[in-house]
């Protein structure tokens, strides 16, 4: 409860800081959401993607 009170007083009380909080939160949320979605996708397609089987076909030092 004390934490939420501090958060409210610091971030939500003024409209300016509230807007900044939303912007920063959107950036953080975008990173978490996108990378989380990618991680889930790769988990579900493990062994099927090119990045997973690339080492079988490409030798070191060759391009």
């Amino acid at each position: 409860m004390a934490l939420t009170k501090t958060v409210y007083n610091l971030l939500f009380r003024r409209t300016s800081t509230f807007a900044v909080t939303i912007m920063v939160g959107a950036i953080l949320f975008e990173r978490v959401f996108d990378q989380g979605g990618d991680a889930i996708f790769e988990q579900m397609n493990r062994g099927k993607l090119w990045t997973h089987i690339q080492h079988n076909y490409e030798k070191e030092g060759e391009e």
Partner: peptide, 21 residues
């Protein structure tokens, strides 16, 4: 009033964050 207000702002903020994204 304080806890209700914090809850309202949290819900508003979270909705706006998702909307902005």
């Amino acid at each position: 009033s304080e806890s209700r207000r914090i809850f309202s702002y949290l819900v508003t903020g979270a909705t706006t964050v998702v909307g902005v994204y």
